[in-house]
């Protein structure tokens, strides 16, 4: 984990679009996130929340600007170095992106296998994680047999199982019942307490009230406010 207070993710004038030549969904975002912070990413639909998370997770290249991850300019990083940087990030995708041909267990185990953990250790860690999210009995099931809520839990388990240094979650609780959502928020809180930097995109106002954290506010592709220790170049503080 990065020491608390270190800037783990910095965006400098980042613009991005979903397709080459397409309209920009992000327009010059400046942001610096410190290690161990927890932010909600909020804004109206189409404000660019998912685009910003994709840029932060290095799944969408910036059209302009600079992205520094753990102090490293990702545009200058070698392929191997980029892979190592990505291993330090956990992502909960809005559409889950589960591999349908793999079991629940193997889906959750993916980041650990990529990190090169021993299979015995993987069995132990994944078993614990699945038990924690209440999917222990479904470990061998293919994702196709799961409900939307269960699929979302698998996606969350996969994102957090490797204890990432940054957790980026796009509407991670949208399909969960209140009891499960609360349990997952407790899980995210635990990760945060252990030093993980969390950015959670949500529309859920109830969640914001019950588990208060600083906000990053996006509007029309611009970051207009950043609360807590996050810094934003332009716009008011939330």
């Amino acid at each position: 984990m990065s020491p608390p207070g270190d800037i783990v993710l910095r965006l400098e004038g980042v613009a991005a679009a979903w397709s080459e030549g397409g309209a920009e969904a992000l327009r010059g975002v400046d942001l610096a996130l410190r290690a161990g912070t927890f932010h909600y990413l909020v804004g109206p639909s189409g404000a660019g929340k998912t685009t910003l998370l994709r840029v932060m997770s290095l799944s969408l290249p910036a059209r302009r600007g600079r992205i520094l991850l753990f102090g490293r300019d990702v545009a200058l990083a070698e392929r191997g170095e980029l892979a190592a940087l990505r291993r330090r990030i956990g992502v909960v995708f809005q559409d889950f992106r589960l591999l349908e041909h793999l079991s629940v267990f193997d889906n959750v185990a993916l980041p650990l296998r990529i990190a090169g953990l021993d299979e015995d250790r993987i069995a132990e860690v994944v078993g614990e994680m699945l038990a924690w999210v209440g999917l222990g009995a479904l470990a061998e099931a293919p994702p196709g047999q799961l409900s939307m809520g269960q699929r979302q839990l698998v996606a969350i388990a996969r994102a957090v199982v490797g204890r990432p240094q940054i957790l980026l979650a796009d509407e991670p609780l949208s399909n969960l019942d209140p009891r499960r959502a609360e349990r997952i928020m407790y899980l995210f809180g635990e990760l945060h307490r252990l030093g993980t930097t969390v950015v959670l995109a949500t529309h859920n106002m109830e969640l914001l009230r019950r588990f208060p954290h600083p906000l990053l506010v996006l509007e029309d592709g611009r970051l207009v406010a950043a609360g807590g220790e996050a810094r934003v170049a332009a716009g008011a503080q939330a």
């Binding site: 997770s57 290095l58 799944s59 392929r79 191997g80 892979a83 190592a84 940087l85 990505r86 291993r87 330090r88 990030i89 992502v91 992106r97 591999l99 993916l110 980041p111 990529i114 990190a115």
Partner: peptide
């Protein structure tokens, strides 16, 4: 392509 993209997003290097 999609699976490969996902693996790379999780930090899989070219060798993996």
């Amino acid at each position: 392509a999609e699976t490969v993209d996902l693996l790379r997003l999780m930090g899989a290097d070219d060798a993996y």
